[in-house]
Nucleic acid binder design. Sequence first.
DNA 1: TGTATTCGATCGAACGTTCGTTCGCCTTTT
DNA 2: AAAAGGCGAACGAACGTTCGATCGAATACA
Lengths: 221, 221
Amino acid sequence: MRPEKPEHAFESPRPAPLHGLTDHASTSYDERLNQILEAATGLMAHAGYERASMRAVAKAAGVSLAGLYYYFDSKEKMLFLIQFRTFSSLVSSLREKLLGVSDPIEQLRVMIRTHVGYFATNMAALKVCSHELDSLTGDSYEETRRIRREYYDLTRGIIDRIGDVYVHDGTLDRHVATMSLFGMLNWLYRWYDPRHGRSPTGVANQLAAQFLQGLLGKSAI
Amino acid sequence: MRPEKPEHAFESPRPAPLHGLTDHASTSYDERLNQILEAATGLMAHAGYERASMRAVAKAAGVSLAGLYYYFDSKEKMLFLIQFRTFSSLVSSLREKLLGVSDPIEQLRVMIRTHVGYFATNMAALKVCSHELDSLTGDSYEETRRIRREYYDLTRGIIDRIGDVYVHDGTLDRHVATMSLFGMLNWLYRWYDPRHGRSPTGVANQLAAQFLQGLLGKSAI
DNA sequence: TGTATTCGATCGAACGTTCGTTCGCCTTTT
DNA sequence: AAAAGGCGAACGAACGTTCGATCGAATACA
């Protein structure tokens, strides 16, 4: 029997199990779902959303084509789940690391390090998030936009505080500054492979140094 | 009679006309080709390469589906022509504007202004260039990679000279610096619309100021 | 405890659609 | 008369998705 549709767009299709659910059963379901999601992430990162066929995902995940639809309503929901999980975990990871850091300059360093660090351990997922932003439609799109907006607000807030405290230039457009930072970070997947050469820490440090110097300019510190 | 295949991948499929070619005939052919290319560029920028169907391109260009194939061997060649023309004209435009500018700092300002200015008047084309880099395969891919490499080398050369003359930090990875600049610029299509709000000059100036300050740091000027 | 039954999980096969591309024919221009 | 320019119609392949069946394990009942 196929499961019902979920209430919320960001849940996988299976309803809460009706029988007394054992940890093992739930774990098996989640493991399988993650295994599929991971295969899909890899394929979509490599070939792009449209060119990553459900048949290829099924093969890579070791499941039949029809079997995919026990776990996902549609290909688009699958992409949504990838993006939603990645963005959510990135944002919450950033929030955690910001706790206890009060200097906005240090906050920005933490933000950049967190992003680069997250990229280093989740390259494929973050690439899908950067590159397939417009592949979602309707509610799924709105939902991911909401989280991206959270990420923007978080970063923009830091830059605002830096601007208020350290920058008295008057010509600094903070939106432009924020988006240029996201440009640097979201373009990483095009050239940076942490598996050979530069360390994530090194790259993050240079990006942070560059961007901060760019913001602060001649305002010292 | 269908035209033969072109020798070089970056030409349109029609062979040099065998009859005595009049300016008008050639112009008509080129106009039609450009008109199709422009429609395709708009659709691919808006929906992405895979989702922009040849049928939609034909409709938008006011040509029949079959008529497209009089001008293009394939959809991929069409994308290639868009990217090739855009990259070529961007690079040659940059080379022109760099003539007579000897200070590398000013050269970098020119580079950024040129790119942002080009973006402002060719948003769709540059978006297709930024977003569909991996949609080409084989020789077409290699050919665009060659031009992109030219663009990189040009920019990297400027940054190298700035580094040699002004920066004595020793920790500056110039490849990282160059790619972070391309990140800022290639991400523009995600957030910047020159048609309302900020002027291209303003945005370019801020990006240049930020990036240069970021490079130069405490090294003054 | 043994047996019947439900149900989660999975699959092969197919359906309907859309896609890029081609063929053959027509019209217009030279 | 020949060539360039253009089109309707079709082809074959690939796609996302669904249907119906199967099978083992858990559950209910005897």
